Simulated assay, not measured.
Amino acid sequence: MSENEKAKAKGEQIKGKSKETAGRVVGNERMTAEGRAEKAKGDARDAKEKGKDAFKH
């Protein structure tokens, strides 16, 4: 997995989880949903990179 893409994926996952948690704490459903979406985007990027690695080896 390229280190740059791996870092982006982890960053999106962390940012999304933080935003989701903050949204739950303050009771903001929109923020919670945005956080879930960002986390899912990071998860998808991570899965894509792992798939690439599987075909390289």
Rank of each mutant, 00 (worst) to 15 (best):
M1V: 11
S2T: 12
S2L: 15
S2I: 12
E3N: 12
E3W: 12
E3C: 06
N4C: 06
E5A: 11
E5P: 02
E5H: 08
K6Q: 14
K6V: 03
A7V: 07
A7F: 09
A7S: 09
K8A: 09
A9P: 00
A9H: 01
K10R: 09
K10H: 07
G11H: 04
E12L: 07
E12K: 02
Q13M: 07
Q13K: 06
I14L: 11
I14K: 14
K15P: 01
K15Y: 12
K15V: 10
G16H: 01
G16V: 02
G16D: 00
G16N: 00
G16K: 00
K17G: 02
S18A: 14
S18E: 13
S18H: 14
S18T: 15
K19S: 02
E20M: 05
E20L: 09
T21F: 09
T21R: 13
T21M: 13
A22R: 09
G23I: 04
G23H: 01
G23Y: 02
V26F: 15
V26H: 10
G27S: 15
G27I: 14
N28K: 14
N28C: 12
E29G: 05
E29Q: 14
R30C: 05
R30V: 15
R30Q: 15
M31S: 10
M31R: 12
T32F: 05
A33T: 15
A33G: 05
E34H: 07
E34M: 11
R36T: 15
A37M: 05
A37W: 02
A37R: 04
E38N: 04
E38K: 04
E38F: 05
K39G: 01
K39V: 08
K39Y: 04
K39D: 03
A40E: 09
A40I: 12
K41S: 03
K41I: 07
K41Q: 04
G42H: 01
G42I: 00
G42D: 00
G42S: 04
G42P: 00
A44C: 05
A44P: 00
R45F: 06
R45H: 09
D46S: 12
A47T: 03
A47V: 02
A47I: 03
A47Y: 10
K48I: 01
K48C: 04
K48A: 10
E49I: 05
E49C: 03
E49W: 07
E49M: 11
K50W: 09
G51Q: 06
G51T: 03
K52S: 04
K52W: 11
K52D: 03
K52M: 05
K52T: 01
D53T: 07
D53V: 04
A54C: 09
F55W: 13
F55L: 08
F55C: 08
F55R: 10
K56D: 10
K56L: 08
K56T: 10
H57V: 09
H57A: 10
